[in-house]
Amino acid sequence: MEYINISVANQFSKTPGPRLIKEGEFSGELFFNTILDQAFSEALQSGKKIKVDLDGTAGYGTSFLEQTFGGLARKYSAKKVLELIEIKSDEEDYLKKDINEYINAENDVQI
């Protein structure tokens, strides 16, 4: 399976911030609009999967993650997001579970 690789630290910021652009720098909304949404559209067209690498940053607020991955599920459906997104988070293993919850919360889809 081919992957579209996204590294938050290298492609966006080492210090991801709040939920919305108006709340401060490097928000989840900005990450969604500039990187993740485009990559997801591309993945849908090409049949590739997306690997999001969360390591190498200072840490994440819950709102950033929810806005990013919950937002993706709100736009496309939780089922599609769960099919196409793979999370890499060796430094904070619990983030995978949290992100799954945010995605599932949109459509009550369980994995």
Binding site: T15, G17, P18, R19, E23, G24, A58, G59, Y60, G61, T62, S63, F64, E91, E92
Partner: peptide
């Protein structure tokens, strides 16, 4: 790296903002 520390900062700053 103390990632929990960054989370606390982010949550608190955002709460104040909102």
């Amino acid at each position: 790296m103390c990632k929990g520390l960054q989370r606390v900062f982010l949550e608190l700053m955002q709460n104040t903002h909102n």
